[in-house]
């Protein structure tokens, strides 16, 4: 237990400490709250925060729901089918976003094949493009987690329950769901945190305004290299805090639901 904890606490703690220091100490030295003041004074920051939250919730819910369905469909299939479905997992998010543009942008492959697309999915105001890209990437990831949990003896236990007279619905609620619940919750939290903090995808398929929080931080450093660093560090720290609080709340909620 100790080595893992020590590694994480030391490295991660160091990183957070470093970020705090960057946000409070500009290049010349001396503590100053300028970065934090600039951050809160900027209306774009609040817009970015709300937008990030909206996109995160949507992407996580859609991915989790789809993953359960897909895992159920795929668990009776062999290695090849599973491998094909898992193909997006090793593809970095940035590349998936590029693929999305290749396929779904006006003049993209889907447009050329179908004549025209009904929805505007790239750079749309609602951030649907972002949700779609993350769903494409995260559903296979969640499916991987779910299938790993389902693989160890689930079929046998379902059959045992069926023999004991449990209906399909009962089997689902009492055998399948408890097995997949833990990896689903954990995986969903990971997905949510990831979507909240990532910036390559919104940079490619997201709307010009508002940016997501991480994109906001990145753009802050592009504008004014010196002062921007402090603002970016402050923005990233707040995002991190929000993600951690969200996760803690989600874990607490999951525990009360299952009556642990």
């Amino acid at each position: 237990m100790a080595p893992a904890m020590a590694t994480v606490v030391l490295l991660f703690g160091g990183a957070i400490a470093g970020a705090v220091r960057t946000s409070l100490v500009p290049l010349g030295g001396g503590v100053s709250l300028d970065s934090w003041r600039a951050l809160f004074a900027d209306p774009a920051f609040l817009d970015a925060a709300l937008f990030s939250l909206r996109v995160t919730v949507l992407a996580t819910v859609v991915s989790a729901a789809a993953a359960v369905g897909v895992a159920g469909l795929l668990r009776s299939h062999g290695t090849l089918v599973r491998a094909l479905a898992a193909l997006p997992v090793p593809v970095p998010h940035l590349l998936v976003a590029v693929l999305a543009v290749l396929w779904l942008a006006p003049g993209g492959l889907a447009d050329r094949a179908l004549g025209a697309l009904p929805l505007s999915l790239i750079r749309d105001d609602a951030g649907l493009g972002i949700v779609l890209v993350y769903a494409y990437k995260e559903v296979p990831f969640l499916v991987l987690l779910l299938l790993a949990a389902m693989g160890s003896g689930l079929r046998e236990r379902e059959e045992a329950a069926a023999v004991l007279g449990a209906s399909a619905r009962q089997r689902l609620a009492w055998v399948v769901w408890p097995t997949i619940r833990a990896p689903l919750v954990v995986g969903s939290i990971v997905v949510a945190a990831f979507v909240l903090g990532a910036f390559e995808v919104p940079l490619v398929v997201g709307p010009n305004y508002p940016p997501t929080l991480a994109a906001y931080a990145y753009e802050a450093t592009q504008g004014d290299v010196l002062a921007g660093e402090g603002v970016a560090a402050a923005a990233l720290l707040l995002t991190a805090l929000a993600a951690i609080a969200l996760a803690a709340a989600a874990v607490r909620l999951a525990r009360t639901v299952e009556g642990d």
């Binding site: 994480v8 160091g14 990183a15 945190a193 903090g197 991480a214």
Partner: peptide
């Protein structure tokens, strides 16, 4: 413990990288 261990997952890697640089 779980939360402590999983915290780096919740923070964008860009932030942890930048924080560790110095």
């Amino acid at each position: 413990v779980f939360l402590l261990l999983a915290m780096p997952l919740l923070v964008t890697p860009y932030a942890t990288g930048a924080g560790l640089t110095e």
